[in-house]
Design a protein around this nucleic acid. Structure first.
Lengths: 197, 197
DNA sequence: GCAAATATTGCACAGTATGCATCCTTGTGC
DNA sequence: GCACAAGGATGCATACTGTGCAATATTTGC
């Protein structure tokens, strides 16, 4: 379905993962600030120049490429008329179903974030494309005039999702399907806090 | 009260503002990606090396230094026992009262963000210290076990505050005192969205 | 197989950011 | 006032980041 099957595309995906893995293991071994793009390239078996063909900068290599709604899901959302948050969460469920998450890599990311908190903005920043997409979807419901409100909602959703992602990485008993449910529960906790005025 | 009155400290504050102003005007004139730290230093009348004594990197010079709770406010919060969100908002009111905001600079920031959306993460990132402080305050109420929930709340609050800050910059009729109130209203809109399940 | 499309690489180069030594300015104690 | 300590400003050297360009290699479609 989402499978691009040409040799070129398979290689591209594999190389990007090898780079990420190299960046993660080196950062865990030496500390993120002591790892250079040259070291990462060498570990991944490519040239430094090629590294920059795959990732815009050294930091984003660690968190990999952000997931993204496919057209099908966007179309479903536009056609649906359920409650806003419920539909957004459902779209996210479809997104996570289509993307095959690698728990091993996620664990490495989580462990690195524990030792290098300065990377937290980069981790949450990696969800930016997704966040923007969520905001765009929400805007189709609440109207362009309320875009900044839609962005605030999208920020909260993607943040909760990021947190849950880290929980999932470290809990082998937790299925990928429940990620969105746990994130939704976190959002309801937030709603409770916001009611305490 | 917050006044450090030695010549050294007054100079330091003034220089940091001159650097920020130089960074803003140059970025608005030439486009942010065409402005170098050397240009900023020259415009501010200092050396490039001195630029890096004031700001950690080129981007943060644009948004200036983040505000920060003073000890007094923190002590007040710890002693208070009102509803969580209400107390957090009250602490923010005190924070904004103590810090003298410069609407002119804020306007330049807002205009630049309009032309260079890639700076938005840096703008919201500048609130990070404040966000962490808010989370710490919230943790004293909800407990360490719920830290990630407190951080989600802090993220929402600081995001809403950032949005409101930009509104205030462009609305001369809006008083600084009402910033927190408008942000609180945004948070209630968010609460409404979160209830739509 | 061949030609077009696409990837990889080396190289040059501008810019970022830091450490260090030195010089200059400001605060302090007398 | 003056001398000395503390803290800032600067120049210089240097490691690293990230990009453009041209050359080379690989994949794809036919």
């Amino acid at each position: 379905m989402a499978g691009k099957s040409t040799l070129r595309d398979r290689r591209r995906l594999q190389t990007s993962r090898e780079i990420q893995r190299a960046a993660l293991t080196l950062s865990l071994r030496h500390g993120h600030d002591l790892v250079t793009t040259e070291m990462i390239a060498a570990e991944a078996g490519i040239s430094q120049r090629t590294f920059f063909n795959y990732y815009l900068n050294r930091d984003t290599a660690i968190v990999g490429q952000a997931p993204c709604f496919d057209e099908e899901t966007v179309a479903w959302f536009r056609a649906s008329s359920g409650p806003l948050l419920a539909d957004l969460l459902q779209a996210l469920r479809q997104l996570l179903n289509n993307s095959d998450l690698d728990r091993g890599t996620s664990q490495l990311i989580d462990r690195l974030l524990g030792t290098a908190p300065e990377l937290l903005p980069i981790f949450y920043g990696s969800l930016r494309r997704l966040r923007d997409q969520i905001a765009d979807l929400a805007v189709t419901r609440v109207g362009e005039d309320a875009r900044s409100d839609a962005e605030l909602l999208a920020e909260a959703i993607s943040h909760a999702l990021g947190d849950t992602f880290r929980i999932w990485a470290n809990d082998d008993a937790m299925s990928a399907d429940s990620i969105v449910d746990v994130a939704a529960a976190k959002l309801q906790v937030l709603r409770g806090y916001l009611a305490q005025v």
